[in-house]
């Protein structure tokens, strides 16, 4: 799952080396946190959140097999 989201997000952004994806597995829900460079937030969210929602739909399909809910959250990486 993490691999899938990482592949998609990397291909969408201008700064693929600045992304990170973490997955936290709960019992019934799996939380995926996607961090990207601040300037890339628009690329992963899209107009009216369309791209973010498409990524969520695809993640849900990937999580379907394990019968788990999947939450995908997007945030800007703090400048280091």
């Amino acid at each position: 799952m993490k691999d899938l989201i990482e592949f998609i997000v990397k291909a969408l952004v201008e700064n693929p080396d600045k992304i990170s994806v973490t997955e936290t597995q709960g019992e019934t829900v799996s939380i995926i946190e996607v961090r990207v460079a601040e300037t890339d937030m628009g690329k992963v969210i899209g107009k009216e959140g369309k791209i973010a929602n498409a990524i969520r739909t695809i993640a849900k399909a990937a999580g379907g097999k394990e019968q788990k809910r999947v939450n995908v959250e997007f945030m800007a990486k703090e400048a280091v």
């Binding site: 998609i8 291909a11 969408l12 369309k50 791209i51």
Partner: peptide, 9 residues
């Protein structure tokens, strides 16, 4: 969703 993602990329 697949279409939107692939188009964007």
């Amino acid at each position: 969703s697949l279409q939107l993602i692939v188009s964007s990329i």
